[in-house]
Amino acid sequence: MMISVENIEKKYGEVKALRGVSLDVKEGELFGLIGPDGAGKTSLIRILVTLLKPDAGSATVNQLDVVDDFRKLRKQLGYMPGRFSLYPDLSVEENMNFFATVFGTTIEENYDLVKDIYQQIEPFKERLAGRLSGGMKQKLALSCALIHAPKVLILDEPTTGVDAVSRKEFWEMLKRLQKMGITIFVSTPYMDEANLCDRVALIQDGNILTIDTPEKVTQSFAHKLWAIRSDNMYLCIHHLREHPEAESVFGFGEYLHVTWKNQEMQAEEMMNYLTGLGHTNVEVKETEPGIEDVFMDLMQKHDS
């Protein structure tokens, strides 16, 4: 195992950020930690990168204990924090040199690893890091995190607030790094990014809801799921929620995703119910659940 986490707990005063988290990440895996703000993602990551001590439980990265072996471990891991934490008043090149020197290496020594990414910002190497655009800052931060050729790369929400195009490019960079043999542990609040990972852990309120491949996670959804729409989506939501057999009704893109207490509910019955209430262009069809459907189902079960 490249990362092994056992029953980690962390409290801030009265607030329980992590309530007994356990997970394993295999060597060479691209592992996603997926959950909303406040779920405990950053706490777990800060423990893994030795910046925070757990209250209970233990964790190792590349067989090194995150508390006892922190000095050794820091040399072996690459960490990209959620906030831009390079030196804004140093240039691109100066930042790279600084991080290389801190880790006792040079840009040239591990250039192969960062070449792909660094080349995209090299034309601006004289520019101060604080004056780069969001996308370029991100590429510089990733280059700096890789400069000492780490075995594991740990990234805290690298795609938050980033547009869909840049997000896609960033994931392509991660995939290329994985092919070069680096184990990657990445957190994200975007559920749709789950499908880009080998395995994912869904986290909410300091608890892991499930850990599996994205395919198996979606297969675990136990209800029949219906996609429904009409010309008036606002009223469609209300009318469906008023139905005594309705279990959950939520917007999912252009359709509503609906589950029923009665699994035998037929499309025709739903159709008649809505047209009877004056809806036009009603569409009802069975659909495949996504990671978000599963997440919502698991978090509601966990709450009750």
């Binding site: 959950g35 909303p36 939501i237 939520f250 509601q300």
Partner: peptide
Amino acid sequence: SGGVDPVTRRRFWDLIYEAAH
């Protein structure tokens, strides 16, 4: 709606629909 859980995010859109309505 950045960063909130998927249920909260949808409840928020319920409010948006209502305002538009």
